[in-house]
Structures are given as C-alpha cells and as structure tokens.
Design a protein around this nucleic acid. Sequence first.
DNA 1: CATGAATGAGCATTCATTCAT
DNA 2: CATGAATGAATGCTCATTCAT
Lengths: 196, 196, 196, 196
Amino acid sequence: MSPRTKEQVEEIRQRSRQQILKASLELFAHQGFHNTTISQIAKKAGVSKGLIYNYFSSKEDLVGGIIEEAMETGEEIMTTIKDQELDPWVAVDQSIDHIFILVQQNPVYWKMLTSLSFQEDILMKFEPLLRKQEFKNLEHLTDLVRRLGAKKPLMEAMYLSALLDGILLHYLHFKDKYPLEEMKEFLKAKTREIGK
Amino acid sequence: MSPRTKEQVEEIRQRSRQQILKASLELFAHQGFHNTTISQIAKKAGVSKGLIYNYFSSKEDLVGGIIEEAMETGEEIMTTIKDQELDPWVAVDQSIDHIFILVQQNPVYWKMLTSLSFQEDILMKFEPLLRKQEFKNLEHLTDLVRRLGAKKPLMEAMYLSALLDGILLHYLHFKDKYPLEEMKEFLKAKTREIGK
Amino acid sequence: MSPRTKEQVEEIRQRSRQQILKASLELFAHQGFHNTTISQIAKKAGVSKGLIYNYFSSKEDLVGGIIEEAMETGEEIMTTIKDQELDPWVAVDQSIDHIFILVQQNPVYWKMLTSLSFQEDILMKFEPLLRKQEFKNLEHLTDLVRRLGAKKPLMEAMYLSALLDGILLHYLHFKDKYPLEEMKEFLKAKTREIGK
Amino acid sequence: MSPRTKEQVEEIRQRSRQQILKASLELFAHQGFHNTTISQIAKKAGVSKGLIYNYFSSKEDLVGGIIEEAMETGEEIMTTIKDQELDPWVAVDQSIDHIFILVQQNPVYWKMLTSLSFQEDILMKFEPLLRKQEFKNLEHLTDLVRRLGAKKPLMEAMYLSALLDGILLHYLHFKDKYPLEEMKEFLKAKTREIGK
DNA sequence: CATGAATGAGCATTCATTCAT
DNA sequence: CATGAATGAATGCTCATTCAT
C-alpha cells in the first residue's frame, strides 16, 4: 500500500544498473560498441529496452558507466601498493603482480577498453579520463626503473609498458590458452637485467 | 566514343578498385568497420555507391580485398630476407628492421587489422587467413632466438612477439609522437642479452 | 498515523487534482498536446507519474478535465450578465468586456483551446462540448446586434465573432506586447457604426 | 547502360520532392506536426520512408521546405499588386482580394501555419522567416489605411489584421460551410467607413 | 493516497544493397 | 563502366501506461 522506502528503491536501482552494465561490458568487449544493439544488451541483462534509458542517457553513456566503475575498483587495488615503502626489486615484482591481477580479474573490461581505443569517435569522449590514467602508469613505471638503476629510465619504462600491453593483447586474444603465469615469471626474471 | 581496348578497361578497373580499397582501409582504420558507411567510402574514393558493388560483393568483402592486397606486398618483402643465409645476430636485426618497415610503410593497415581483431564477427571470417600468418611469424621468431642460444626459445619468442605487438600498439596510437626509431635501437640492444 | 477524515482526504485529492490540471494546461498550451509528456506534467505538478492516473484515466482525459473546469468558471461569469435586462448599447459593451475579461483571466486556457482546435484527433472527442458553446456565443452576438438595428444580424455577428477571435489570436501570440485594452476601446467605438 | 543525364536525375528528384512536400503539408495541417509520423507521410506520398531522408534532413526540415515553397508562390502574387499605382480604395479591395485568393488557393498551407504557430518548439526555428512576412503585411496594411485617411492608421491596420486572421481562422475550421465570399464583400463594405 | 521501476509498442532516422538507366 | 534514386529492415530512443509496494 505504502510506497517503497528510499532504501528499497535505491537497492532495486543498483541491482538493475549492475545487470545492465555487466551485459553491456561483455557485449561491447566481444562484438564492439557499434556492433552491439541496445536490444541485445536488454535481453542479456534480462530487462526491457526502456529500462536501460532509466539509468543511462544513451548507448555511449553506458561506456562511461563501465569505465567509471572499473576505475573505482582499480583505484582501490592501486592504493594498497602505492603507500608502502619498499625495496625496489620487491616493488617491481608487486607492480607486475598488480597489473596482472587487474587484468586477470576483469579481462573483459580490458578487452573492451583496448577495442574502444580503436574507435576514434568513442575514444574522443573518454580520452581525458583514460589519458590521465595512462600517464600516471607510465610515471609510476619510470619511477620504478629509475630506482632499479636504469640508465634511460623513460625508455626503459616505455619498453616495459609496451611489453605489458603486448602481453595483455595476446592474453586477451588467446585467453586460457595463453601461459600468462609463466609469462609473468619470465618477465620478472628479465627485469633483473635492468640497471646492470 | 571509340570502344576502349581491353587494356584500357582493365586499367580503369584497377584504378577504381585501388581507390575504393584505399578509402575503405583508411576509414575502417580510423572509424572501425561497423561505424563506416558505404556512402563514406564512395565519397572518399570519389566514386558512386553503386560502383563499389561492381568490384566487391559486400561491405565485408572489402575487408577481404584489403587483407589480400596487404599480404601480397608483405610476402614480397618477407621472401627477400628469408632466402639469405645469415649470421643469427644480423638476421635478428634484419627481422626487426623488416617488421618495423612493414608497419611504418602502412601503419593504417595495421591499425585496421588490430582494430578488426576485436570485432569477433568480422574476425571469424578472416581468422584462418590471419592465424596462419601469425603462426609463421612466431615460428620464425622461435627459430631466430634458438640460433641465438636462448634457453627457452618458445617463451623468448612469445616474449619478443608481445613486445613487438606492444610497440606497434603504442606507435599506432601516438603516431609521430612515438619515438619508434629510438625504440627499435633500444630493442636491438636488448636482444644482445638473449642467450647469455 | 491516525486515519484521515473524509474531509481531509477529499481536500488532499482536490489539491493534487488542481495541481495536475494546472500543470497540464500550461504545458499543453505552450508545447502542444502531443509534444507534452506525462513525465513533464508530473514534474511540473510536483507529483508522481502514477498519481496522475489516480485522477485521470489517460492523457486525453486531462484535456477533458481542463475543459470542464474552465467551462464551469466561464458559466458563472456568463450568467451574471445574461440575467440583467439592459440597454442594447450597454449590453454590447458589457459583452465585449466579458469576453476580454475571460481571456485576460486565463489566456493560457484559450491558447490551449485554440491550439487543440487544430489537432483533429483530439478535437473530435471534445467537439460536441465546444461546438455547443460556440453556437451559444454566436446566438448571443446575433441577438445583440439585432437589437442594435443591424440589417444583416447574422453576418454582422459572424463578422464580430471573427474580429474577436482574431484579436484573441494576436493577443495570445504577442502577450503583453499587444495593446489589448486599446484594442477593446477601438472595437467598442467601431460597434457604434452598427445599425447606422 | 549509360547513367541518367543530370537533367533526368533532376526531374526525378523534383517529382519525388514535390510528392513528399504535398503529403507532409496535408498531414501536418490536419493532424499537427507531432502527431504525424514519417511512415504516414511516406505512405501518402507513395514513397519509402528512407527516400524522404534523401531530400530532407529531418522531419523538421520538411516544415522548412513547405514554408519556403509557399513563400515563393506567395511572393509572385504579391509583386503583381505592389507595383501598380492605384486609387487607394481600389488598392484596398485588391489587397483584400489578394489575401483571400492566397488563402483559398492553398488553405491547407495556412491551416498548417496557424497550427504550427501554437507549437512553440517548431515555431522557434522558423520564427525569423515568418515574423518578417508578418511585419511586411502589417506595414502594407498601415500604409493602405493611412491613404484612406484613417485617423489612427496603426490601430486601424491592427484591427483589420485581426479581422482578416479571424475570418481565416473560421474559414479554416468550417471550410466550405463558411460564407467566405459573402464575408469578403461585407468586409469591403465595412472598409468604406474608414476615414469618415 | 502515493511512488517510480518496469514495460513494449512506436517513432525518427540510418544504411547496406538493388537496379533502371 | 558508372550513377544515384529507391527500398525497407534494423537501430537508438521515447513515452503512455501498469503495478508492486
């Protein structure tokens, strides 16, 4: 008889919103943004087409929602590492672990993101958001390799960055057939050469 | 008014065909396959929409045409290297040069290809064609590093492959702002460590 | 928590109903019926979408509600005049005043009504209601001008009627920039010619 | 075998364009802009939905097309009158005739226009176009009545303008049941009073 | 009495493809 | 060989209406 409480409403909203975001993410990642229809998302999320527009103002806005959410989660993991003062070799290993964990936890997100980075129309709208992140990461890497005694820290960091993205790329394509763990250890071993 | 000769007709055909392929490639690379319209291609190629269907049976078929053409060119360069018997260190440098040249000569093609590799619907149709190429490349790399005395040739090759693709990825995004040449030399220097 | 009395409930009902009608009227008048959404009405009225359907069975029914209410108010003013026995010149002036007052008191209503008269789908449902009113007005005017000694009372009445509607039309468009009062006096002066 | 000539294409285009404009005008006039669908227009025009967008960029653009076309036709008639030097009484009669002819020739257009003037969203986009016309008309009327010796030419012109619009309004509603010709003569007779 | 999440039919618009010339 | 008018299925998005609470 009486209307739902604010809390009930908010919970319902969050559940629907999550379902929609999850479905969008998966479809965008596998089919690409422009090849995914709202109807597909609605069906996969188990809601009506109309409901999607109760939570997101447009198809593009879904991308924004996905990125925002992933960044929040990513931020959390990041901070746990950053605060600690560490031996540089340990820090490098931890950073590598961190990146691999991030990717392994949510490979679909990274697939979507990489895919999106080739869609210039969409990219344009979210570039500021993403570039900042990118820059922070490169800065972090540069700092790390400098502490390892690299002679050309920036080059070394860019090299490492390309390597990580390359591994990510291959992992995203081959999925479980890719020896990600082995690659990680191989990579860690390689970093031992830096500064020598 | 006089009837054109067979050769003239064939030449006209080839020119139109090339214009269409070139326009398609550029648009697919920058906007993505599904976000590019036949009208855009026709306009950019300076031909009518109808003409495109004289040369290609569908939008997808354009992708096929692009890939085929690029493979032919790629093949040529490849063979010039393969045939020569070389000191492994020189061979590695040459292979690296070769890859970088390929990318620098036609970055748009590689951009389109990478972009396409995230469009599973399109990928599916051209996967066999591409996977074969991929496998050959990995085989070639494995062979190279083995001759350099690598302890784990396959891992080393995969590592190198990821690295190359990572650099490619970054180059495709940052274009002329990316220090590609410097990166190449840095990479060559790194390969000196292999086998030690 | 204590149960509301019948009167309280009724008062609440009436207030909500009025708010909804007021919001509808204004939006219909300015945006047109088909370009106004229930959501807009709900927002402007400060109620939920659902509540509107507690009082009105459909969007169209809102129009019915608006017209009914306006007719009731119009009726009241009308009767105060009709009953009095008057010198015809005074009666004409009073009738003109009456019409102008009606419009000035609720211009939005007249705007909506005129707008609606061009929406044949809506008009159809309320035509009987409106035509009756129209006819009564024309009859009243005919009677007046006949008492003024007009030679062609019906033509004169139609002429006057067109004039009044024309002035109304212009007033509704130009709002406060329109010299309505001046026009009224000008019109009254013109009526002095009738019957001469 | 050979493609159509420029002229053939242009003729085909004009025919299709006219069919679409005609259908749009009629539907907009009777059902209102927002209550008319592109499908209805396509069906009435005997073309596909898609074709409409080959000629007009949007539903709104159709309104623009209609207005432009009507203005061109209107302009022609206007000029034939304006140029002649005339006895003012004859000029008034001619102007009145002209307006009535315009309306009688294309009542649907005037219905649409009046209807549209209540759709503020659409009006906004075409107001500049229409206001200019309006102003020119009022100016013309003012000039006319001044030459007739009116004491308050502007008021007299506004009065006349309202009258004309009122008659138009009634005519548009009652169509053939409205004694338009009789009204015109009655109106002309009334103008004889001006300046006395 | 009151809320707003949810639905789905319907809308404006796009676009690959066809075909008459 | 070449054109572009024409089609219509499909898409993103809107909105009146319902209903559980």
